[in-house]
């Protein structure tokens, strides 16, 4: 605590220094600095576009990215004040932190939407040969996830509700990382697994696993933009400008990647190649693999508020989120107008 406080003091002093320097150089006009935590995934595309196309700069912001390997540390770093804004998937751990009043969700990022394939349920070869052909056959079998209480776990829960099987009868096996899950499927150590499309597709194509289902049937809010209540209290103006510029990013993202022809096929926008190259550069992936993992992002960054409520309740039902957490308390709906599916 004292360390983070001294860090905050240090950052404050530094900010003052930057401010003074900015004043000296530009004679008054200065860019306000925001530190943003993101993962190097295609789903972070809108923030990368907003940065690269200059939307943040035009909003008077100097955004610095900090890259993370997993969602959890982004949330923790935002609570500790090392990050001003985080943009990642929401997990049970996130809700437990947010439930203590440490985090607020302010805008939407990626979500599951029918026709946009983000997450797959696969059966291992051995299980497939033994007759695991449909989702409904899952009860009584072991399904690997990265972590208990992860987005993959919730995906499986939604599928269970929709297909009417009891998730309590599926042995959910945490493997801690995607490569470990892939290993377990390859060796037929588990009968099934929930994996991101980028990891599932090569497995299925190589014949090492069989696709049981895409988890895109029920729309749900996979990833969000969040900040700390303290930021909202002290730097609301900067956050509002950040969200506005971010929404220009989501709009550009939609134009490039999400438009559909009447027959349901995706139609790339005029700037698709340029934007793909930008995202590829930020994520360090090839343009091809980025194209294969483009998720649906609401063009106006509106949240599926009802789903956030449902997530919290579902996790609480699984005893993964503390019963005292109120979904309304983790949301701040004032930054984006017209949120979707808002419960009364």
């Amino acid at each position: 605590m004292t360390a983070s406080r001294s860090r905050q003091v240090g950052r404050f002093a530094w900010r003052v220094g930057v401010l003074l320097l900015g004043l000296a150089l530009a004679g008054g006009a200065h860019a306000e600095k925001l530190t943003v935590g993101v993962l190097k995934l295609a789903s972070s595309g809108p923030v990368f576009l907003a940065q690269d196309l200059g939307y943040f700069r035009e909003a008077g912001l100097e955004v610095e990215f900090k890259f993370f390997e997993a969602a959890q540390p982004v949330a923790v770093a935002t609570v500790s004040g090392d990050l001003d804004v985080g943009v990642t998937g929401v997990t049970a751990g996130f809700y437990n932190l947010a439930g203590k009043g440490a985090l607020k969700i302010i805008a939407a990022q990626a979500r599951e939407e029918p026709g946009y394939r983000l997450v797959a349920v696969v059966a291992s070869r051995k299980a497939d040969e033994a007759g695991l052909k449909r989702l409904e056959d899952l009860p009584g079998h072991a399904a690997a996830v990265t972590q208990v209480g992860s987005t993959f776990h919730y995906s499986l829960g939604l599928l269970a509700e929709r297909h009417g099987f009891d998730i309590g009868k599926v042995r959910v096996v945490p493997m801690q990382s995607v490569p470990n899950v892939v290993s377990a499927v390859k060796g037929s150590q588990v009968e099934a697994a929930i994996l991101p499309a980028t990891a599932a597709t090569p497995l299925v194509n190589a014949g090492e696993a069989r696709l049981l289902a895409w988890a895109d049937e029920t729309p749900w809010q996979v990833a969000v933009v969040f900040t700390s209540p303290k930021m909202i209290g002290t730097r609301r103006d900067a956050l509002e400008r950040f969200v506005a510029a971010y929404r220009r990013g989501t709009e550009a993202f939609r134009e490039a990647f999400l438009a559909k022809a009447p027959d349901g096929r995706l139609v790339p926008g005029p700037q698709a190649d340029r934007d793909l190259a930008i995202i590829a550069r930020y994520t360090g992936q090839s343009a091809e693999s980025v194209r294969g993992s483009i998720p649906y992002v609401d063009p106006q960054a509106r949240l599926l508020v009802g789903d956030i409520h449902r997530q919290v309740r579902w996790y609480q039902g699984q005893k993964l989120v503390d019963p005292g957490v109120d979904p309304r308390g983790v949301l701040d709906l004032s930054f984006v107008p017209g949120h979707l599916d808002v419960p009364n």
Partner: peptide, 8 residues
């Protein structure tokens, strides 16, 4: 591990 993942 799971308590860490869940921030409990």
């Amino acid at each position: 591990l799971s308590a860490g993942n869940l921030m409990q």
